[in-house]
Design a protein around this nucleic acid. Sequence first.
DNA 1: TTGTAAGCGTTATCAT
DNA 2: ATGATAACGCTTACAA
Lengths: 339, 339
Amino acid sequence: MPQITLKDIANKLGLSKATVSKALNGSFEISDATKKKVLHAARLLNYTPNQVAVNLRKKQTKTIGVIIPTTVHHFFSKIIDGIIKRAEKDEYLVILLQSNENFSLEKKQVNLLLDKRVDGILISLSNKTNEFVHLNKIIKRNVPLVLFDKIEPSIPCSKVVIDDFKAAYNSVVYLIKKGYKKIAHFRGDFNPKNAVDRFEGYKQALIDNNIEFDPTLVFMCNNNADFEDGYASAKKMITTGIKVDAIFAITDLIAIGAIKYLREQQVKIPEDIAVFGFSNWFMSSVVTPTLSTVDQPAYKMGEMSMEILLSEIRNLQQHNDITHKEVVLPTKLVIRNSC
Amino acid sequence: MPQITLKDIANKLGLSKATVSKALNGSFEISDATKKKVLHAARLLNYTPNQVAVNLRKKQTKTIGVIIPTTVHHFFSKIIDGIIKRAEKDEYLVILLQSNENFSLEKKQVNLLLDKRVDGILISLSNKTNEFVHLNKIIKRNVPLVLFDKIEPSIPCSKVVIDDFKAAYNSVVYLIKKGYKKIAHFRGDFNPKNAVDRFEGYKQALIDNNIEFDPTLVFMCNNNADFEDGYASAKKMITTGIKVDAIFAITDLIAIGAIKYLREQQVKIPEDIAVFGFSNWFMSSVVTPTLSTVDQPAYKMGEMSMEILLSEIRNLQQHNDITHKEVVLPTKLVIRNSC
DNA sequence: TTGTAAGCGTTATCAT
DNA sequence: ATGATAACGCTTACAA
């Protein structure tokens, strides 16, 4: 059954398309009588405007594009949740794309979104992204852009992040205050900024507490930053005879991998070695022992990114000048039984 | 900077819009010479076609809509992964919406997608959905629809599901073969079909093995089917003095909640009580003890749903008749240490 | 208060 | 081989 159009209603009622359109949009120019007639006919015929036509005419699509490294990730799925819910409030639709940690895919996806004429774009950069022409292209095209979590500081756009440095710093300080002195760090080399910031936080916490930084206590988890990496690093640490009394892991998954190995080796947690994670995945609350970790406000991050994007879109449409925001969301320590 | 259009290129080159369009689309009517000129100019000006205009003209958007209950769920996020990856292969974009287990929201979202003129729709029904006019509307509008996971059998469209009955049946048979005789079931009352099917599978397995079905061993987890529910049900079971030697839980999360309570009470797993889950979340492989469970092919389910949707879209465009498929994806038991 | 007509940026048909 | 024109379905000056 072919879609009903304005023209159909106009013909049926002996009115012009213009009048029908105005009536449907509640224009004050139209008499109540015809408004009623039009509305009634529209309901009867089950008419709804073809948004593609509306979009073309109005030059806005009420759609925004989101590019993230992967959806299969507790942190990112909560961010998506926040993004979609916030978008819905303003009747925006969300196109979701995964870069899959692939830079050239990310570039391609930016172009797709631009061609789709989305009203704004939200990106969490892939770990491989080290060039930024695609981002600058977005900006040059005057499409609002907000970077979140995995960002590039030099891009002139709004950004929403977590203070990784501070969160790591606080975690390690917490460990130190509890009496741990030989604290290993299981780090990642990939998600450039986050991993580096956490590492720096770790280091600074040691220094500020008069504990000498010992590079041999730092283990690089550069495989995939996942469970296996934590397991392998713990194994490497134990088998090479490196003695520590605590581990600060860059990720819950890595922490849990480490826990698994330690438990297999009858290492008591936290008595022999304490473990601290990062992210507060749900999983952390059910492993044995339950994992102390850093809670990241993922939902909030998505919501906030969308919020800022929407306000920039609004400002753009109203020809107000837009000022970029840089939001640093607070994290908090969640102390459980692993330290 | 205003977007470059066909007209700009045409003017610059002293050609007509028509010629430029044809050249850009590689039409055989256009001479190689002008093709080259046009392509060069297009590249120079950084021209890319406005997809909104293309969509209006071609009456197709190369976009499909997906409605799921929630993104924050390991199972669903893997499905989304499968959907997006498959869509991308055919250069389709995906609009993602969450019904949030809210029926009226689901209805509204269907309308949004229809107005957006998406080329097809993928839905996993909310637990509250008990009317189906919105689905029939999609079909009446001739928009391809595929239902997955949470489906309604009576709707004339393609469906992709898991054989919940069989998976539950096999799990319980496995428990029985291992010698367990008093097997409790922690069930859910909500996601209608899945929960019921699993319950029926459980029951049938008992009957087929000459174990009398005992309704007092069935615990309803109708809060949210989550961790807390499993914990509470286990508590109820133990405190009311009901003796069992195994638990078949409808969900890993519920199983893990149960495990938590049992361990707190010094109940040995699996020696005193065995536990069997359902879904094979990653988490199941890291809890203590690691959880035996049913692996659901989530990624495959997303991929397959999209695959079928795309083929229906293709058939529709080519005016072939479309036949609906009903795919039942196989599951498999993952045996770990909890039974 | 209603209608006419142009235009959004394409593609497709039919001339030339 | 190229171009004029209409059409996709809507909104919006501007006229009536």
